[in-house]
Amino acid sequence: MNEIVQGLLEAGRMIVTLDRDLIEITLRSLQVTLTAVVIASAIGLPMGAWLAINRFRFRRETIALLNALMGLPPVVVGLIVYLMLSRSGPFGVFGLLFTPTAMVIAQVIIVTPLVASIAHQAIRDLWAEYHDLLISLNTTRGQRILALIWDGRRALLTASLAGFGRAIGEVGAIMIVGGNIDHATRVLTTAIALETGKGNFALALGLGFVLIGLAIALNIAIHALSRTERDSQW
């Protein structure tokens, strides 16, 4: 109990004093995760919409696979990305291992199925609702996807946010591919793991509270942002 209080105090102290290391790793956390989420959304959202609208062979199988990939264990993803990016691996020539880019790649792989799957569900429901109207209005396939993505943007934002939530708190994969290098690839989660390892529970917990605060703040910000553009009564 005492340690939790200490952790809260530590979090407060670091924030109030604008601790330089804290700011640095927090920014890096955001940078890596937001980049990963943007890329994952760019892939996952249209993919989910496409799966919802199109009928093709192996569609069910594809969706089942997508749902299964949602449960990809991050550690395994980390390990595979590590082996891919290692100098002795197939993409070794790029020298990406232990860089923020490697962390972004791992997170994109972890998050994309999640974003695509949630987007697919949301768009599928909306498509069921809009189907007759859009057919009646003689829309083209492109116009349909556009209408569904635009009108489903709130649900899609939720999908991206879910991706963000998964990515920002992820430690297994980015620890492996990033290496937790001070001033290079250290982010909030890996710093927490490190400080826990040193027995510095107060500092670890403090970082943990900052992480939680960050996730909540971003959710609220995006929620507020999407609310202002909507009808106040909706």
Binding site: V32, I39, I43, M47, L96, T99, T101, V104, V108, H183
Partner: peptide, 22 residues
């Protein structure tokens, strides 16, 4: 999945320039 992974890699490589500390 393979395509998305490759494109993820490619875009991530593009991003790396922006991410690398100056």
């Amino acid at each position: 999945m393979i395509t998305s992974r490759i494109s993820a890699t490619v875009s991530a490589i593009c991003v790396s320039a922006a991410l690398a500390a100056p």
